[in-house]
């Protein structure tokens, strides 16, 4: 288990991360979401030891993360970077060796990952000859080449075409299933919702929500679609504890305050005319995200 325990980091007077804690268990895909500048990249850099925290600890398997343990982390930084004039296979093999593989292991693994990402034919090309999307695949291969114990990926899906997104998602799922804790940040909330076992929402340097999407939903507010084609416009005026979120023709979406019984809404509707539809909707991660961020700002 990778534990991030109360880390803080400030740049001058700017607080980048404030007392932030979460953990990622073996075999878990952890999605890290937040607005730009919320502190995701800073957190990841601290985990990798590229940046020193002002306070707090990062532990792996119960022990503070030292250089030897950090070398077992596969990292894809937000700022992508590879040697532009180095051949793909050499570059990956070099990074493999830097992470402690022998020369022949590193080379074999480099070839295997290039094959997996469909870049086998380009193995002898320089990185600079590749398209940006392909460079990104190589960047992920660079994080994977040495068989890491932990994966930390900053925006791995940014700038990928849909096919590449599928390959990338498949690889991450597969690594997690092999017992590797995987953290990645993304603004693609649908993707995070579909892919991740747990999600952490960070805002202005603090973790404002953390758990499975289901758990986050449970903390959020209930919503109901209701369709009463013959009802007058103001039929819902007398119902307490509800708020109109959206209108779609004669359909209306209400958000229920905590503790409000949805049957009260249904009954109020029935008194105005026949109810053609009454539907419980699960908020998407995007909706949860907005609610949580607004709540944190309030």
């Amino acid at each position: 288990m990778l534990e991030i325990d109360g880390i803080s980091k400030r740049y001058g007077t700017t607080v980048a991360v404030q007392d932030l804690s979460f953990d990622v268990r073996a075999g878990e895909l952890f999605g890290f979401v937040g607005r730009n500048g919320a502190g995701k990249t800073t957190t990841m850099r601290i985990v990798l030891g590229v940046l020193a925290a002002d306070a707090g600890d990062v532990r792996w398997a119960g022990r503070p993360l030292d250089l030897a343990a950090r070398r077992r982390i596969g990292y894809m930084p937000e700022e992508r970077g590879l040697y532009p004039k180095m051949r793909l296979v050499e570059q990956l093999a070099y990074l493999g060796e830097l992470h402690g593989m022998t020369g022949s292991e590193a080379r074999a693994s480099a070839v295997r990952w290039l094959e997996r990402f469909g870049l086998k034919d380009r193995a002898s090309d320089d990185v600079q000859a590749l398209s940006l999307g392909n460079q990104q695949r190589v960047q992920l291969a660079a994080a994977l080449v040495f068989g890491p114990d932990v994966l930390v990926l900053d925006e791995p899906f940014a700038g990928l075409d849909p096919v590449a997104v599928d390959v990338m998602a498949e690889v991450l799922r597969e690594r997690a299933d092999a017992g590797v804790p995987v953290i990645f940040s993304s603004h693609e909330l649908e993707l995070v919702e579909r892919l991740c076992d747990r999600v952490g929402i960070v805002d202005r340097g603090r973790m404002v929500a953390c758990g499975t999407v289901g758990e986050l939903r449970a903390g959020g507010q209930e919503r109901r679609w209701i369709d009463i084609p013959e009802a007058p416009d103001d039929w819902d005026a007398g119902v307490a504890g509800i708020r109109l979120v959206q209108t779609d023709g004669t359909r209306r979406l209400f958000e229920l305050d905590p503790g409000v019984d949805d049957q009260a809404l249904l009954q109020a509707g029935l008194t105005t005319g026949p109810v053609r539809a009454f539907e419980r909707v699960e908020p998407t991660l995007g909706e949860i995200f907005r609610t949580v961020i607004e709540g944190a700002a309030a």
């Binding site: 030891g49 020193a52 925290a53 503070p64 993360l65 030292d66 250089l67 030897a68 070398r71 070099y94 060796e97 830097l98 402690g100 593989m101 022998t102 020369g103 590193a106």
Partner: peptide, 24 residues
């Protein structure tokens, strides 16, 4: 964060200084 400066060479592979020099 002193751990950053006291690390070892490769666990099984070659020392990192050598690897960097060899690449150059």
């Amino acid at each position: 964060m002193n751990a950053r400066f006291s690390g070892l060479g490769g666990t099984r592979g070659l020392p990192t200084v050598f690897l960097v020099a060899r690449r150059e």
